Simulated scan of single mutants.
Amino acid sequence: MTAASEAPQTAAPRSRNPLSSRRPQGVGQQKGNRGIQIFLAVVALIWIFPVGYALLNSFRNYAYTAKHGYLSFGGFTLDNYRNAWQQADFSHTMLNSAYITIPAVLLTLFLSCCVAFVVSRFSFKFNLALLGMFTAANLLPPQALLIPVYRMFRAIQVPFWFSDSGTLLNSYWGLILVNVAFQTGFCAFVLSNYMKTLPRELYESAVVDGAGVLRQFFQLTLPLCRPPLAALATLEVTWIYNEFFWATVLLQSGDKFPVTSSINNLRGQFFTDNNLVAAGSVVIALPTLIIFFVLQKQFVAGLTLGATKG
């Protein structure tokens, strides 16, 4: 026998399958994703439970829940919504909220577009300082400005056709101006970041075609900003519609209070019908929910556009 045949034959090394090495990692990743999904589902249920519980009790009779408890099931009726609409005078207070919310949202978005266009398209010395001045209104709590704003509005004299009191107090325009002042900074900040992502070649082409600054703003910039404007409109309607702090400070007559004040009309002197209050809360929340679902597509698009642009 030769030396070659007497040499021990070693087994060839087994090739490692790359798929087998990745399999445990993939399984672990799937388990991690499943855990995240379960966690998010639990958090969503916890978040939705109070709203669903209030919605359920808004259709239940108070006498039934007082006898069987709120954890029971039954006693369904529509009388809570009928009584809430009459006692809270929603037909009047919702009109008051519309008088305040619609002009405030429109003015806020228009002024924010003007500020954002100047800050994002023109370079000058106080560019960032101007944006910071508008954004600074969101850094102070409204309670800190309560007394100065009240005294200022009481001192400003306006015609009686503009306000019944002769000042900005007890006037819809006072609430509109306060909401515009506090919300313009946030909207200008969001819109300026979005306008900076628009290609400058579009504006250079517009200048070559003879378009001035106003034409660039109204015919070029505003149409391209529809998604963020829809997203901001949804947020601003929700914030201004639900705002009640400045209404209690600047309004003095009950016939001008917004719809958020109607909940106090549903409270009894000796006890509170929680089912009636729940029905009133659902009625108050309906306009903002309708606006959100109508503008849902534009709202999501406005939040995601420009997120991946460097």
Rank of each mutant, 00 (worst) to 15 (best):
A3S: 09
F245G: 05
F189M: 04
F257R: 10
Q216H: 00
F122G: 02
V190H: 10
A88M: 05
L130M: 13
F271C: 03
N17E: 15
L111N: 02
Y99P: 00
Y203D: 15
G69F: 08
N242Q: 09
V105H: 03
K125T: 13
D164G: 13
Y150L: 15
Q269A: 09
V115T: 08
P103Y: 14
F245T: 08
N242H: 07
A84W: 02
A129K: 06
A104T: 09
F257W: 13
F293N: 02
S205K: 10
G185Q: 09
V105M: 07
F293V: 13
A233N: 03
I46D: 03
F153R: 06
A144D: 08
M195Q: 07
A278C: 05
Q87D: 10
T234S: 08
S192I: 02
L146S: 03
C187K: 07
F76E: 11
W173I: 02
V158A: 07
F59S: 02
R226E: 06
L224G: 01
S205L: 08
R226Q: 12
L250M: 14
L286V: 13
F73S: 05
I290L: 14
D273F: 05
S21E: 14
T238F: 15
A12W: 01
R154N: 11
A3F: 08
K125W: 12
T65I: 13
K256E: 05
F162G: 05
S91C: 00
L139S: 02
A285H: 04
R200V: 07
P148E: 11
E236A: 01
F245I: 06
P258K: 10
G132L: 13
P258H: 09
S171G: 01
L107S: 00
